[in-house]
Amino acid sequence: MPFDDSATSLLCMKSEGLYCPLGDFYIDPQKPVKRALITHGHSDHARPYMKSYLTSETGRAIVQERVGKDAKVEGIEYGQSIQINDVKVSFHPAGHLLGSSQIRIEHKGFVSCVAGDYKIEPDASCETFEVVPCHQFITESTFALPIYTWEAPERVFSQINTWWRENQSRGVTSVLFAYALGKAQRILCGIDPSIGPMGVHGSVDIFNRHYLRQGYPIPETIRANRETKESFKGQGIIIAPGSTQNTPWLKQFAPQSLAFASGWMAVRGTRRRRALDRGFVLSDHVDWKGIIKTIDATGAQHIGATHGYSDALVRWLREHKGLDAYTI
């Protein structure tokens, strides 16, 4: 069945983004609209210039940070329902990063759930993913190929700790690239702060404050710059976004070992192309098995797949699960 069929979908795709006609709102729109419901604060989901924003209460400050201080951003508690025009809407934790949400939309007993980006493993730096029973489930497919299977996060953190210690014993600074929002904080909460001093890039520092304000266990970090560099050179770890690779800012902490924490690191070619010493497979997205497990748990019969390897996922769901699946 096509995605826009009104009997099986409360949603349709417009050039501005995913749209709910009965509620007259968009979810994570790409172009300016009147009313935007935002799943989380990453820049490809929370964009500036919307007339109004609605997001989870715990994610509100981060979205505000992202879209500008003058924007009208409202927060709503997880699980609390509100009526928007003809539909009932509620937000539920997506486990992607602090305040990330799945958005549940209900109309006359039919329930759609837009999961946004999500992961199902526990994460000390954000709320845990919650299964939302629904008829239609809109899933991401960033890592929707069976080659992607995640290792237990504790084990990845222990690999990072070991790498850091090894570098320390050789007098080399450990540089770990990670997204400044979400991944960086997850790592800071996961690795062992007793190993040595922890430095962060300014962009990570900005988001750390939001996590600290809400009581998340971010250990003490130092903003890495010219004044502070001597304090972690050769023994500390620096968490910075990947865009800092090959910049003068980064070079001042040499000698260094470069690593990236990302789900993409599961494929050797991706790591080698970036000329990294190490790749840690740590993702804030759901892996192939996780997608299938989640779909089963929601009980949904209609599955929409968004950005990523949606074609493969859709074909698999149709042929092996007999579900009404489609690419959005």
Binding site: L145, I147, V267, Y309, D311, R315
Partner: peptide, 9 residues
């Protein structure tokens, strides 16, 4: 699905 994966890897 193997072919899809190979393409990507």
């Amino acid at each position: 699905l193997f072919a899809e994966c190979y393409d990507h890897v």
